[in-house]
Simulated assay, not measured.
Amino acid sequence: MTFNDLKSQVSTIITNQGLNRDEKLLGICKLLETNIAHYNWVGFYFKNGDKNELKLGPYVGAPTDHDIIPFGKGICGQVAVSNKNFVVPDVSAQDNYIACSITVKAEIVIPIFVNGENIGQIDIDSNTPDPFTTEDERFLEFVCAEVSTLL
């Protein structure tokens, strides 16, 4: 399935009036993890109220102990501070990486903005070394823009 095919399915999930916000987010996670071979863990983190930390939202993949991530810590925490996409081709080369699983080789994190504020992110782990392309980034930016309409 192409990214364009997936874009229309993401939009369909977002506009489904029969689902609540978390059901829509979980549906997107399932859609991406099922249809993109190098997406092995797909989840959302959101700013935890007024605290300088992220709280885990809906996800699919192996269970994680990282329900809360302080701003600045790990790839997700760095994106919360930088407000920029972060593509990590090799997690073992990152000093500030929080290991979730020994099988993870690469990670991509894209921020979600609402009214110019970074309120969360999509986080994707891959068991494949260096799998993420510019097309992945653009597609995930689209996903985050769609998700921002729910928040």
Rank of each mutant, 00 (worst) to 15 (best):
T34Y: 05
F142D: 12
D130C: 03
P89H: 07
P63T: 14
D67K: 12
D136S: 10
P131A: 05
K47F: 00
G120Q: 04
K30H: 08
I108A: 06
L25F: 07
A62D: 14
V81C: 08
L19K: 11
S92R: 11
E141W: 00
V42G: 07
F142A: 11
L26F: 11
I122D: 02
N35G: 07
E146G: 06
P131T: 09
I75A: 04
K84Y: 03
K24G: 09
I102D: 15
Y45E: 14
G27A: 09
G72R: 03
A80G: 10
G72S: 12
Q121G: 11
S148G: 10
N127M: 10
I122W: 01
F46T: 14
D67W: 01
K47W: 00
N118I: 06
T12V: 06
C100Q: 08
L150Q: 08
C100M: 08
T134P: 01
D22N: 14
G116R: 03
E141C: 04
T134M: 11
E135I: 01
L26E: 13
T2M: 07
G43P: 08
K30R: 13
Q121D: 15
S8D: 13
S11L: 09
G49T: 06
G18N: 15
G27V: 08
S82H: 02
G43S: 09
V143C: 07
K84V: 07
V147G: 03
L151Y: 15
D125W: 01
A106I: 08
V143E: 09
L151K: 10
A62K: 11
N4D: 15
E107L: 02
Q94N: 09
I98D: 09
T2N: 14
I28R: 01
D123W: 00
V109Y: 01
V109L: 06
P58H: 08
S148L: 06
V79I: 04
Y39M: 07
C76R: 05
R21E: 14
S11A: 14
H66D: 12
N40T: 14
N127L: 02
E137W: 00
I36H: 06
N127S: 10
Y97T: 07
I122Y: 01
K7S: 14
D95P: 05
P129E: 15
V88H: 03
K84I: 03
H66S: 13
M1R: 11
S11D: 13
I110M: 01
P70I: 03
P70F: 01
G77R: 07
N118Y: 02
I69W: 00
D125S: 05
N16A: 13
Q78K: 12
D95Y: 01
C100N: 10
K30C: 05
V91M: 04
F113W: 05
D95I: 08
G43F: 01
I68C: 06
A99I: 02
N48L: 10
A80Y: 05
N40D: 15
N35I: 05
V147Y: 01
H38W: 06
G77N: 09
K51W: 00
Q121T: 12
I13Q: 10
D95H: 02
